[in-house]
Design a protein around this nucleic acid. Structure first.
Lengths: 140, 140
DNA sequence: CAGCGGTTGGGAATCACTCTCAATTTACCG
DNA sequence: CGGTAAATTGAGAGTGATTCCCAACCGCTG
C-alpha cells in the first residue's frame, strides 16, 4: 500500500496475449473464442481456454476487436480498426464488408438526444445477399 | 398430399401457443424464454420449456416478436408491432423505447446498393443512459 | 367417431462461457 | 543481479441457456 502506482489498467504483454493477437491478425473473418483457442493449440503456443476468453473480452472492451453475437449466443471476434464502423454481411457466403457512415452516427445521436439519453453507443448490422450470391440465387 | 392447402405455415392454435402469446402480450418489456416459461408455470397453463422455445423461435421468424441477444447469449423476446423499428435501451435500468427512423432505412439501402448487396435487412440498437439514470449517475 | 399428423413435454445432452485457486511469470525495487 | 509482490495463467468443475429425442397427445378432417 505504498501508492506508487494506481493505474487500473495494468495489462502485461505476455506470450499468451501476443499469441491471441497474432491469431486474430491472421484471420480475415470472424472467429469464435473456441476457434481461436483451437488454432492456438495446434500451433506452438499452448493457451488455456479461460485465458482466451479473458483476453478477448478485454480486447473487445478496449475496442481492439469487434464482437458479433450469433443467433446461438456464441460470440465471434475479429480484429479491426479501432475506429467506429459497422458491417455489411452476406447471409449466404458470409462475406463481410466494413462500412462507416457518419449519417447513422448523427441520427443515433439525434434520436438519443430527443429522448434524453446520454452516453449512447450503437450497434448496426446490415445483412443481405452480396452481388454474387444474388446472381446465383436468381439463376437457381 | 391432397393439395387442398399448401401453405408452409401450418401452425395450429393450440392452448400452449395461445398461452405464450398471451404472456407476451401481458408484459411490456423483454422477457427471456425461461421467464415466460416460469410465468406460464405459475398460471394455470402448464407448458413445456421446449415448447416455449419452439414457439418463440417460430414467432420470431414470422416477425411477431422481437428478439434481442444479451451478452451472455440469452435471447429475450418481446411482442411488438410488426412494422419495422429499432430500440433505444437504457443500460442501467433497462428502460426501452421503440423508435423508427426512415433516415437509417434509407442509409442502409444506399450502402447496401453501393456494395451490390440485395435483399438487405438490418439491425440497429442504441444503448445509453436514460435521463433519470444519467442524473443519478451524475449525482453519485 | 376414427385416423392422421402436427404438437407436446420431460429430461438428458450439448454448447458456450465463467469461476476458482494454486502455481507460474513478470515487473520493478534495492 | 536476486527478491518480492502482484498480475496472469490454466485445468477442470460449474452454470445457464437452448436443443434433441421420442412416445403420448390433441385438434382437425372425413
Amino acid at each position: 500500500m505504498t501508492g506508487t502506482d494506481e493505474r487500473p489498467t495494468a495489462l502485461r504483454p505476455t506470450r499468451q496475449r501476443l499469441a491471441i493477437t497474432a491469431a486474430l491478425s491472421d484471420a480475415v473473418d470472424f472467429q469464435s473464442a473456441q476457434e481461436i483457442h483451437d488454432v492456438l493449440r495446434r500451433g506452438n503456443d499452448k493457451v488455456g481456454l479461460a485465458t482466451v476468453y479473458r483476453t478477448l473480452q478485454a480486447m473487445a472492451e478496449s475496442g481492439e476487436v469487434d464482437v458479433r453475437h450469433g443467433p446461438a449466443g456464441e460470440a465471434s471476434y475479429r480484429r479491426c480498426s479501432a475506429s467506429h464502423h459497422h458491417h455489411l454481411v452476406c447471409r449466404s457466403c458470409g462475406r463481410t464488408v466494413e462500412i462507416t457512415g457518419s449519417a447513422v452516427e448523427k441520427w443515433a445521436h439525434a434520436v438519443a438526444d430527443e429522448h434524453g439519453f446520454t452516453d449512447v453507443a450503437h450497434t448496426v448490422e446490415l445483412i443481405g445477399l452480396c452481388a454474387d450470391c444474388s446472381a446465383a440465387a436468381r439463376g437457381n
